[in-house]
Simulated assay, not measured.
Amino acid sequence: MCYHVSNESDPEELKAEFKLPMDKVEQFKKRYDFNGFEKPFLPVISKENPRIIDMYRWRLVPHWIKEEKDFKANTLNARNDELFEKSSYRQYWENRCLIICTGFFEPHYPDLNGKEHESWYIKPKHKKYFMLGGIYNEWNGMKTFSIVTTDASPLMAEVHNDGKRQPLVLKGNAALAWLVPNLTQDEMKSLMVYQYPDEELEAYRVIDGIYNAKQDTNLPEAIKPYERPPFDVLSMYGV
């Protein structure tokens, strides 16, 4: 699953990096932690208009939904193995986009039999941004998207060790191919097995609470390596 991403950069940095103009800049926000369940707007490049960076809202809403409050499905992510069959997605596989972020978060379970988990952050080692493969739909005049998820790479399977899933991270020709207008389903399936090289990823534990909706994690510490709080051993003995 991929329910939290970061983008702590400015619009000018995005435009300079991708050499593209940006639409709807007023919807842009920079945050250390975007919670998908809050349905934020994020910068995307879409098949529909790959010559601009646009702002789409996270959580795909199918066209047949009248009131979003009545739509109970979790469509923050679209599994690659459900994309062409599941009713929430099957009409939108041709609507592909790239979601721009500086990193994403995943839970890690030190004990797979336990409930306690750590928050881990994954970012590109040599670049500023990730491009995540997604699909979108226009609903009530607003573009809404889901992030496509795939089987985890060896590194990501160690991080997200309960579900062994990860977002579809694309780069170079794979990212360009995702925006080709007339891809077939078989060609799209081939793209969805692409794995961003593990040696180009940086993954580390960050502050706890990323997945706690009651905790404010829009903090610089959210994307910095975890530092264990100081522990006074002598205090255990009343010294």
Rank of each mutant, 00 (worst) to 15 (best):
S146W: 06
Q91V: 00
S235Q: 07
Y92M: 01
E221T: 10
I147P: 04
K15P: 08
Y196W: 05
F130S: 11
P11M: 08
Y121S: 03
F37I: 01
A175V: 05
I45R: 09
S6G: 09
N173T: 12
P181N: 01
L176D: 04
E17Q: 11
D54A: 09
S153M: 09
D198N: 14
F71E: 08
K47C: 14
L112C: 01
W58V: 07
G103L: 01
R96C: 05
P197Y: 14
P230T: 11
R228A: 09
S235L: 07
V44Q: 00
E158S: 11
K72M: 05
D186R: 15
H108G: 00
K143S: 04
M131I: 08
R57H: 09
L191C: 00
P40H: 05
K171T: 11
Q215C: 11
K125H: 06
R228I: 02
L168F: 11
D10M: 11
D70A: 14
L112W: 00
I53Q: 01
S146H: 05
S9T: 12
N113Y: 03
H126T: 15
N212A: 04
I223F: 07
A203S: 09
F71H: 12
K214T: 07
F231Y: 12
P21N: 05
Y56D: 14
P110R: 13
P197N: 12
P124D: 08
S190C: 04
Y56I: 06
E68T: 11
K164Y: 01
Q27H: 14
K47L: 13
S190T: 06
K224P: 10
G114F: 01
F37V: 06
T102E: 13
E200L: 15
I223T: 08
V239M: 02
N212K: 08
P229K: 03
N218F: 10
Y136W: 10
L234Y: 15
V25K: 15
M142A: 11
T150R: 03
I99E: 04
G209L: 10
F105Y: 09
E38T: 13
E106M: 08
F41T: 00
D111P: 00
Y237G: 10
V159A: 00
S235G: 14
T149M: 03
K19T: 02
K189P: 12
E12Y: 02
S153H: 12
Y92I: 01
E8T: 03
V61H: 07
N95V: 14
W178I: 04
E106I: 04
K39I: 08
S235E: 10
L176C: 01
L42S: 06
Y196Q: 09
T144Q: 02
P50F: 03
S88Q: 10
P181R: 01
I99H: 09
D232L: 15
T184L: 04
P107K: 02
R79F: 10
P154Y: 11
E94N: 06
V44I: 05
P43Y: 10
G238E: 13
L132N: 02
A73V: 05
Y89I: 09
L170E: 02
N35D: 13
T144E: 03
